[in-house]
Amino acid sequence: MQAGESKDAIFEATGSTVGVNNVSFEVPEGQIFVVMGLSGSGKSTLVRMLNGLIRPTAGEILVDGEDIASCSPQTLRAVRRNKIAMVFQHFALFPHLSVADNAAYGLKIKGVGTSERRKRAQIALEQVGLGAYTDSAPDELSGGMQQRVGLARALATDPEVLLMDEPFGALDPLIRREVQDELLRLQKALRKTIVFITHDLNEALLLGDQIAIMKDGKLVQVGTAQEIVDHPTDDYVAAFVADIDRGKVFTAESVAEQPVFLQLGTDTAETAVQSMEDVQRNALYVMNGEDIAGVVTYQDAAAAVRTDGVTLADVVSSDFQTVDADTALSELYAPASNGLPIAVTDDNNRLLGVVEPGAVLAQLSGEPAASVDAAAAAKP
């Protein structure tokens, strides 16, 4: 490997497979870090290294400064019991134990007393929506529910790090999406540090704060979903993301611009026309202090200039669209169709940015913003 030989050449010469090759990454606390790749890319080997199931031949694996790669068996057991939990693809539930006892199993290994582990298991089951199934047997539950029991078992020990090795791979598509949504809901509340393994790019894009794409044991790109879709590092990554629905990856925030706006009581129809010509926009938002009063178009402002007694306030329209910053672009199709800018607002309805219809179309097409159809950004 140090001489630069390929994975295939090393296998042919030695009979040994290079599972993970010089991989380096850092997972910030509270994030979901998704590792994805095709079968044989090394992703499952990688996740098994993170809890010491496979020892690397070189390198370090640091969890809170503790090197899992070189620590003693006693230290490794302590890390597994107190800091790391794993959720498996095929549930790995004990068929002879109840749902509650399965959820409490990690606590039992830690030596937690019966009443306390029952209490904590119940809390974990309620977190995943299975509080009413504590005394059921695993085979009485659906596949999605069984996987939630596996997740509850991991959560019951209150680990700092969750390792999830293709945990939803055995589920039907509809159930899989339900459990993905459940994980996102839990993560929003619990903010665990999660390393999630998958071969499904759509799943990676949905779940990952950061995504690492593996090929032949190496990381070929690490970034956010938007970075990977917008700027694939090579042809391999580009082929992965070629058919992705960009409308589900990008958000209003990703195409929003700093708002140029007018103020009631200060601006006039004349200054509105001049402002729109200066910034080459056919409509601008009008503010009343920090509140959005409405939107005015170039056509209406110009008409007001030509008509005696008509002010800017008279031509401001209250028929405008607002969205949150994290609204998916797919949800902006309809609002963008009327040709007016879309207001991006916060929880207090304050104007954070403006999305021009042309910017939505440009991002969905994968073209640079500068190449937006001239009709969407032309000088009015």
Score class of each variant (00 low, 15 high):
residue 124 A to H: 08
residue 81 R to P: 02
residue 108 K to S: 15
residue 66 E to F: 03
residue 104 A to F: 11
residue 53 L to H: 04
residue 118 R to Q: 14
residue 101 D to S: 13
residue 109 I to S: 06
residue 122 Q to Y: 09
residue 130 L to Q: 13
residue 65 G to E: 02
residue 125 L to M: 13
residue 98 S to G: 07
residue 72 S to Y: 09
residue 48 R to T: 02
residue 126 E to I: 05
residue 125 L to V: 14
residue 13 A to L: 11
residue 78 A to G: 06
residue 88 F to W: 02
residue 22 N to H: 06
residue 54 I to W: 03
residue 83 K to S: 00
residue 28 P to W: 06
residue 102 N to I: 12
residue 125 L to E: 11
residue 4 G to E: 08
residue 106 G to V: 07
residue 100 A to G: 01
residue 86 M to D: 00
residue 71 C to V: 04
residue 59 G to A: 05
residue 31 Q to H: 10
residue 125 L to H: 09
residue 90 H to G: 06
residue 96 H to I: 13
residue 134 T to R: 13
residue 8 D to N: 07
residue 129 G to E: 13
residue 28 P to Y: 06
residue 20 V to G: 00
residue 85 A to P: 00
residue 123 I to G: 01
residue 83 K to M: 01
residue 15 G to I: 04
residue 64 D to F: 04
residue 67 D to E: 04
residue 55 R to K: 14
residue 18 V to A: 03
residue 42 G to E: 05
residue 46 L to G: 06
residue 122 Q to G: 15
residue 24 S to D: 12
residue 54 I to T: 05
residue 42 G to Y: 01
residue 106 G to D: 09
residue 59 G to P: 10
residue 92 A to C: 08
residue 107 L to W: 12
residue 82 N to L: 01
residue 127 Q to R: 15
residue 12 E to M: 07
residue 108 K to G: 13
residue 33 F to G: 05
residue 9 A to C: 05
residue 103 A to C: 14
residue 22 N to Q: 14
residue 40 G to E: 11
residue 99 V to N: 04
residue 101 D to E: 15
residue 125 L to G: 07
residue 39 S to A: 15
residue 19 G to I: 02
residue 41 S to N: 03
residue 12 E to P: 00
residue 4 G to P: 09
residue 77 R to H: 01
residue 93 L to F: 08
residue 63 V to W: 00
residue 109 I to Y: 11
residue 130 L to P: 09
residue 135 D to C: 12
residue 74 Q to P: 00
residue 135 D to I: 09
residue 6 S to L: 08
residue 4 G to R: 07
residue 82 N to P: 01
residue 135 D to E: 15
residue 35 V to W: 03
residue 62 L to K: 10
residue 24 S to I: 09
residue 32 I to P: 00
residue 74 Q to E: 15
residue 34 V to L: 05
residue 52 G to N: 07
residue 72 S to V: 03
residue 10 I to N: 03
residue 101 D to I: 06
residue 7 K to Q: 11
residue 90 H to F: 12
residue 18 V to W: 04
residue 96 H to F: 12
residue 31 Q to G: 05
residue 77 R to L: 10
residue 39 S to H: 12
residue 56 P to C: 07
residue 39 S to D: 12
residue 110 K to T: 12
residue 11 F to G: 01
